[in-house]
Simulated scan of single mutants.
Amino acid sequence: MEVTKLEHACQVLTRDGARLVLDPGNLTRPVDTTGVVGVVVTHAHPDHVTPEQVQRILAANPGAVVIGPAGVADALADDGIRVDVVTDGDARTVGPFDLTFHGSRHNVIHSSIPVIDNTGVLVDGRLFHPGDAYTVPAVPVEVLATPIGAPWLQIGELMDWVAAIAPSRAYPIHEATLSEVGLGMHVGRLREVVEPAGAVTVLAPGDTTTV
Rank of each mutant, 00 (worst) to 15 (best):
V40C: 01
V141W: 07
A166R: 14
V41D: 02
V49Y: 01
V49Q: 06
D32I: 10
A133C: 10
L6R: 04
D74Y: 00
G131N: 07
N107V: 04
K5D: 02
R126L: 08
V66W: 04
A75F: 01
A59R: 15
Q154P: 00
V193S: 03
Y171N: 11
P130N: 14
G206K: 06
V36K: 06
G63E: 14
H102Y: 10
Y134E: 06
H45K: 10
R126D: 11
G131M: 10
A150S: 15
D88I: 01
A170S: 13
I81K: 03
S168R: 15
D84K: 11
A166D: 15
E180N: 11
V21I: 09
H48E: 10
R191A: 11
P24W: 00
P196K: 09
F128P: 07
A170T: 04
I109G: 07
R92H: 08
T146A: 15
W152H: 06
T135M: 03
N26E: 12
V12Y: 06
M1C: 13
T33P: 15
V85A: 04
E157T: 11
N61W: 13
T50P: 02
D74R: 08
D117P: 03
P147A: 11
G80S: 13
D117T: 04
D160G: 12
G68D: 03
A44G: 08
G25V: 05
E7S: 05
H48K: 06
T135S: 01
R29V: 14
A73L: 02
V40Q: 03
G35H: 13
P167C: 09
G206N: 08
I165H: 06
R15N: 13
G35N: 15
L22D: 02
R105I: 04
V136H: 11
V162H: 04
G89E: 08
A44Y: 00
